[in-house]
């Protein structure tokens, strides 16, 4: 019993270090292949479109309701202790520092990270990646590098967009349900607004973007076992990148704020 547990633990530890090492190697390869970033700009722009523009509807809905609920919850917490004149500022700080970057990253981990893993995984099991290799085209350069930079660039852009929409959602709730005027709400936002908070959130979103793309590509390239393997990779990509986002969020919050 003990030896079985020890063996299972040992296997998981080896697996963890193998995967972590593999991801660092892939990251180094992506940076090395980034010397062709200008030449490959067309592929990167196509990926940016897939990551950014195509994610707008989902990010809009998520951030609108996140902003709305955060205003409602903040008002509930303030009741009897803090004046609602601070509602705009408190909600904005929560959105810029935490909710905007983290929720946008989690949404993208589900939409983009899983889709990268599924796409590359399908290419792996149908020998399309081998076919690329046979044409003397590096799969890291042609597939991973454009996706990596597309997500790293577009996630902060989407986060800014999500921040604006979430703030709008918060304002709608504040003005319609909590009797907070536009002047009172946005004066409070202005009073509490610090660029450091916004840039801190955006710095986090760059790290989250790198995690999502790296995990998606790594898991995709390591896919085996046909359709079942692709399904497993899709789930793994979302789970691993979600964990990485939350761990990175904690570490970066400690370092930045």
């Amino acid at each position: 019993m003990v030896s079985t547990l020890t063996r299972a633990l040992g296997r998981n530890i080896i697996d963890f270090f193998e995967k972590s090492g593999g991801m660092f190697i892939l990251l180094a390869q992506i940076f090395f292949e980034s010397k062709t970033v200008i030449r490959d700009r067309r592929i990167i722009i196509e990926q940016m479109h897939a990551v950014g523009v195509m994610s707008l509807p989902l990010v809009t809905v998520t951030s609108l309701f996140t902003g709305a609920v955060s205003a409602w919850q903040a008002a509930y917490q303030f009741e009897g202790f803090v004046s609602l004149t601070y509602l705009g500022g408190a909600t904005a700080i929560a959105i810029f520092m935490e909710l905007g970057p983290v929720l946008t990253a989690l949404v993208l981990a589900g939409r983009i990270g899983a889709s990268i893993a599924a796409e590359l995984g399908t290419m792996k099991v149908t020998e399309q990646i081998d076919a690329l290799e046979c044409l003397a085209i590096s799969p890291v350069r042609y597939l991973a590098m454009p996706r990596f930079w597309a997500v790293v660039i577009m996630l902060p852009v989407l986060t800014i967009y999500a921040n604006v929409i979430a703030l709008f959602g918060a304002y709608v709730v504040a003005s319609t349900l909590l009797d907070v005027s536009a002047t009172m709400f946005f004066d409070s936002v202005q009073q509490f607004f610090e660029l450091r908070n916004l840039f801190g959130g955006l710095t986090k979103s760059v790290a989250f973007g790198a995690s999502i793309a790296l995990v998606g590509c790594y898991v995709g390239f390591k896919t085996f076992g046909g359709a079942e393997g692709v399904g497993r990779s899709t789930i793994d990509a979302f789970v691993f990148s979600a964990i990485l986002i939350l761990v990175n969020d904690y570490i970066l919050a400690m370092l930045i704020f």
Partner: peptide, 14 residues
């Protein structure tokens, strides 16, 4: 590899 072409069993078209 440029000197070697390969036809895959499942065609492996993109």
């Amino acid at each position: 590899r440029v000197k070697i072409g390969m036809l895959f069993q499942g065609s492996a078209l993109f």
